[in-house]
Design a protein around this nucleic acid. Structure first.
Lengths: 235, 235
DNA sequence: AAGTGGTCTAGACCACTTC
DNA sequence: AAGTGGTCTAGACCACTTT
């Protein structure tokens, strides 16, 4: 338990709000009222209210007051670890190849430019549930493939060589027929569409740095995302 | 342009960090140093640093200092509006029906309990690209279907009747064969799997309040999500 | 001991809203 | 004019890390 004043107040107000003490779009007591009630300075109250604001419980209106805010259900977020829902990551191979059409487009490179490809099968309970492949443009003077293996993570591989904090990531969740080698490795029938997560890493100027595909079997299950408040503690 | 001191400082530090002035896991100058440099009080500097902290650019270590934080690419978020990527929402019908197996499970109700179902086809450029259906347990004393129509949004419908700030939302993105009436309405071949987003609304105790399915055609495109810093302004 | 971030205070002034 | 949130200050004390 945190024993800081502002945290106590945050938890207290959280409880009050979630318990329905205030109706939707009701007003909270003013900063000065709250400061007096909790016997703290206005600065401390403001710190508490700031946290509630950031967590989406309330919004402040200048000159009016603080209002209860219904949870927003239009922004969803989910974790992607390339390890979530996976017991074991069976490394397949690293190779330097000419990219397929999709990889070419994703990395914005021409057909004669080769890429380093990392392949692995992801298992759960000794059953393959996903296939993950990552592509990085191959550059002369790159460390040998053997050395790359220990950087086989993505984007960690890139972080080691480029300014990591310049990178922006995005994911596209789609449905696609996997390449034959993926279907074979996952032991699923070919020509059957699968859930696929395409990952893109770009720098701030939009220049692609890496591209990855993650094919998920039925056993893997759906991709799940959540919305609503973020609370400082559970009830 | 904001002319507040703390915002000027935030933008300035953002630029410095993103331009690569500090290496990864480098230290920022101390609060006192920054306060002196920008000629503001320590409180103001802390407010600026707090914002950078919340946006994921830095982390503070007690007794040590502030450190540049590489962007995290394991948490992704996306918008779901049931209107994004859609021009026009063609309302199909509202009906009170007995639920299918999936809806029964999602709403945790028995087979003899009826549900109110809302159907609509979502179009882009006069072409159907998605089918959206929502299910709510039917209760005696509910307003008539005609009245419900104006609440045909989801979860707004529920918000009006239940404590809205008690609701938690989640989405499952999956691949599924649509029901015949969906395939027909979207003019896609039956028995072909589609991208589907299942939406769940529960209260804080996990009790289901609403369930929805959103079938996306190939024309709709992938679901896209983003990771990385959240910046206070664009460069 | 010196430096760092973390908490908290009392008070000033401003901008906005309501009466 | 009174009340509200928003910005900013100077200063105190604490907890943690380094030297």
């Amino acid at each position: 338990m945190e024993d800081h004043l502002y945290m106590q107040i945050v938890r207290r107000l959280e409880q009050d709000i979630l318990s329905g003490m205030y109706g939707p779009s009701d007003m909270l007591p003013s900063e000065n009222t709250l400061a007096a009630r909790f016997n703290v300075s206005r600065v401390t109250i403001r710190k508490s209210l700031d946290i509630l604001k950031n967590n989406g419980l309330i919004t402040a209106m200048h000159g009016k007051g603080y209002f209860i805010k219904p949870p927003q259900h239009n922004r969803y977020s989910f974790n992607f670890d390339s390890n979530t829902g996976v017991d074991f990551s069976h490394f397949q191979k690293v190779e330097i190849i000419y990219p397929d059409a999709e990889t070419m487009a994703a990395l914005n490179i021409s057909a004669d430019r080769r890429v380093v490809a990392f392949h692995r099968v992801q298992e759960r309970a000794w059953t393959p549930v996903a296939y993950d492949e990552k592509f990085v443009p191959y550059e002369r003077g790159m460390p040998t493939v053997e050395i790359e293996i220990k950087y086989a993570e993505f984007p960690e591989l890139l972080s080691a060589r480029h300014s990591p904090f310049l990178l922006k990531g995005s994911i596209e969740i789609d449905i696609a027929v996997p390449p034959d080698y993926v279907a074979k490795a996952l032991d699923v029938p070919p020509d059957k569409p699968m859930l696929v997560m395409r990952r893109f890493l770009r720098n701030r100027d939009g220049v692609p740095y890496g591209f990855g595909r993650n094919f998920l079997t039925r056993e893997f299950g759906p991709v799940t995302a959540e919305s609503g408040y973020s609370l400082t503690h559970k009830f």
